[in-house]
């Protein structure tokens, strides 16, 4: 037991109250967006003026928005598949093999996780401009792969480090070669981690703006579209409505990812 001199009941309640306030602080802004999406007023100000579903109805009629969502889904799915594949390969190499330069590789691979987005964005922009690659959804996708692959590697590596190598050895002893073992034993056993890596890459990609901004050219993804709308006050109710949907969706995906990660470990 931890012997806190303060009566336990007292300290518990102070901590709990602070935790409750903090949780409120985290969720209040999100709740605000959801509330405004049902507010019957073209301006997003208090006091609220009444309940409506009209913003949700208008949302479906917006062709630009549909295009942006489609683009984001395409980029999200493709780039997350590639990021998960690359991350898994790197995780297998790093966890199961010893090789010179491993520490260096891990250090460099960790950089995209924290480096300011603006640096990554402009550096890639310069190269694409110099080589003459036009800015399209493809360049955005490449950016997203570099952002997400390191994180995918960490998720899969945590899983690989978690289970016994003996299982793989047993499969090989029974005659399976390395790649068969990988395909039939290692990867299926890592399936929840692979799914978690894919989904967290996907949510990041759907939301990525700071790097995308430099690589997108004249195409739009969902965040690029959102950003362009933020400048027009008259479009804000629609943006907020979209926000409400996206917030609820991503909360749902995050809960699934968390479940998968717990299954994995």
């Amino acid at each position: 037991m931890i012997n806190s001199g303060v009566p336990r009941k007292f300290s518990l309640s102070v901590g709990a109250v602070y935790f409750a306030l903090f949780t409120l602080f985290m969720y209040l802004p999100i709740a605000l967006l959801v509330i405004f999406s049902f507010n019957d007023s073209p301006t997003l100000t208090f006091p609220l003026s009444g309940f409506t579903l009209k913003w949700y109805q208008e949302l479906w009629k917006n062709q630009e928005l549909v295009t942006a969502v489609t683009n984001s889904l395409l980029v999200g799915i493709l780039s997350s598949l590639v990021a998960t594949a690359l991350g898994t390969m790197a995780a297998l190499g790093v966890i199961r093999f010893e090789f010179p330069g491993k520490t260096l590789f891990l250090s460099v691979a960790a950089m995209p996780l924290v480096i300011p987005a603006v640096v990554m964005g402009v550096a890639m922009l310069i190269v694409f401009a110099r080589v003459g690659v036009p800015l399209t959804l493809w360049t955005v996708g490449i950016g997203h792969v570099i952002i997400n692959a390191p994180y995918a590697m960490l998720i899969v590596a945590a899983r690989l480090a978690g289970f016994e190598e003996h299982v793989e050895e047993a499969a090989m002893d029974l005659g399976a070669d390395y790649w068969a073992t990988l395909w039939r034993v290692t990867l299926p056993m890592s399936a929840p981690a692979l799914a978690a890596a894919f989904l967290s890459s996907f949510t990041t990609s759907l939301d990525e703006f700071a790097v995308t901004f430099f690589l997108v050219g004249s195409d739009t993804t969902l965040p690029v579209y959102l950003y362009s709308q933020l400048r027009f006050p008259s479009r804000l109710p629609l943006v907020v409505t979209l926000a409400a949907i996206m917030m609820v969706l991503s909360v749902f995906i995050v809960i699934v990812v968390e479940k998968l990660r717990r299954m994995a470990s």
Partner: peptide, 9 residues
């Protein structure tokens, strides 16, 4: 969880 919702929003 809120950290995983849209940054712009």
């Amino acid at each position: 969880i809120p950290a995983w919702t849209s940054y712009l929003l």
